[in-house]
Design a protein around this nucleic acid. Structure first.
Lengths: 250, 250
DNA sequence: CCGACGCTTCGGCGCCCGCCGAAACGTTCG
DNA sequence: CGAACGTTTCGGCGGGCGCCGAAGCGTCGG
């Protein structure tokens, strides 16, 4: 599947590749289409979208989207869930979200001539750079500010790797943020921020912090995208708990 | 550059994508070709290859390879160095190597029917699974064994993230392995092993350990690929310093 | 100085695949 | 029960692009 044999000179000796080149190319090919890439980026908000929503978002016909989603599901990037006449689809997991963000962080920064032209696109871009979710944790300047504050207070060590300290574990406990340490997922891991080009907190701790921030109303989503903004109560909480200047979040 | 506008229904409203979908797709497209993927996988050994070597390795005409390398260099995945009539090319950096390994770790395991058919391919695959370099650090069962041993002796913590402990820093110092902590590169970071599907040690510490192992003769490369094997002196060293059973490395 | 060699450029070929609209299917709702 | 809706399947079309060989260019070596 997905492996197209091209016409190749039969006199030439066979490829000596490790055998994985075709697999790697086929997998990357799943992302190497503008429409599929648009779907994956939209799904980075961690929610489930219907096929129709993605079709409108990407600006292609529903039939086209259907084919794309079929490939992404078959390739293991998405999981689907049928409900009545709807086909809900979401990223297959953390690793996929991490991979897509990773790839996005490798794209070259936009040249001035390519920058968002319309006012609407420019404000949307600014909102994403200010704060957003990266699948299940906080990113953008908001995510960086939280990560830096944790590090500055000795709750997170970045000098010998990337790990919570004992004080960090205690901080999460006293803040009432439960950390599920049963699974195989690392407690803390760094995730390269796509707009800031610096690492921010991911892993169990990053996800728990984000979930807590959303449920307690520290942050709310704006629009239908991944962008989030900090509420007044959130500004107070971040200032009290981590000493983050409210002005640095605006 | 690299962005092809396809014929799209003009009556349809414009795409609302964040504007990055085209960039992401174009970037992934650099890897989504079997020949380019074969080049990238070969270059994962961290060395510089000539265009001709890559052409023979991939089994395509030199002219074809030339075009592929041009795209990879333009896309920032490779850097080139001209020497006389040779064009040397290597991975552009750590992040690229990490990304390629990451992508490879997402490809589905081969089904029995697709497994290496020839004896030569099977032994090469077995050697890679036993031990190899992942750009500049150790991977495969060898890399896992080292990482597990470090963790078991309290030199590396994986329970609250992924970081060296103070005892770990001391261990590197007494072993005579210098760690350059001046750069921005993290001292320790996890890298998902593509064959073992478990994390192994990367970052400054992983690279220093690998370099030390190669220069002191603990490990030697076998063949022209990335595979490495542990020498008798290496077995003694790994057993003495980390308590690794020699039999687990064979 | 001339031939061998490595690499690049160019034209041309052919396949792959993303796109659409039409038609069909199953679900939901009036 | 019939209409509306979300989704899928199917042909067919067209562009992109990977492939090659031939020709050209610069470098190295006898």
């Amino acid at each position: 599947m997905l492996v197209g044999m091209t016409s190749r000179n039969p006199d030439r000796p066979p490829r000596s590749r490790g055998g994985d080149a075709a697999e790697l190319a086929a997998f990357a090919g799943l992302i190497a289409d503008e429409t599929r890439a648009a779907c994956l980026l939209a799904l980075l908000d961690g929610r489930a979208w219907t096929a129709g929503e993605l079709a409108r978002h990407a600006g292609v016909a529903p039939s086209t989207t259907s084919e794309h989603l079929g490939k992404l599901v078959a390739g293991g990037l998405l999981t689907e869930e049928r409900q009545g006449r709807h086909r809900y689809v979401r990223l297959a997991g953390l690793r996929v979200a991490q991979l897509v963000e990773d790839l996005a962080s490798h794209t070259r920064p936009l040249t001035p001539a390519q920058r968002p032209r319309t006012l609407r696109a420019a404000t949307a871009h600014a909102a994403m750079a200010r704060g957003r979710t990266c699948y299940d944790h906080l990113a953008g300047r908001l995510g960086i500010a939280v990560t830096d504050a944790l590090t500055h207070h000795g709750l997170l060590r970045q000098d010998t790797g990337f790990a919570l300290t004992d004080a960090g574990l205690a901080w999460f406990a006293t803040a009432g943020i439960a950390l599920d340490r049963t699974g195989r997922r690392p407690l803390a891991r760094s995730c390269l921020d796509w707009t800031e080009r610096r690492p921010h907190l991911a892993g169990v701790a990053g996800a728990a912090l984000c979930r807590h921030a959303m449920t307690t109303g520290w942050c709310v989503r704006i629009g239908s995208e991944r962008a989030v903004k900090v509420t007044p109560s959130g500004e107070r909480a971040f200032a009290d708990l981590l000493g983050i200047e409210p002005t640095s979040l605006r």
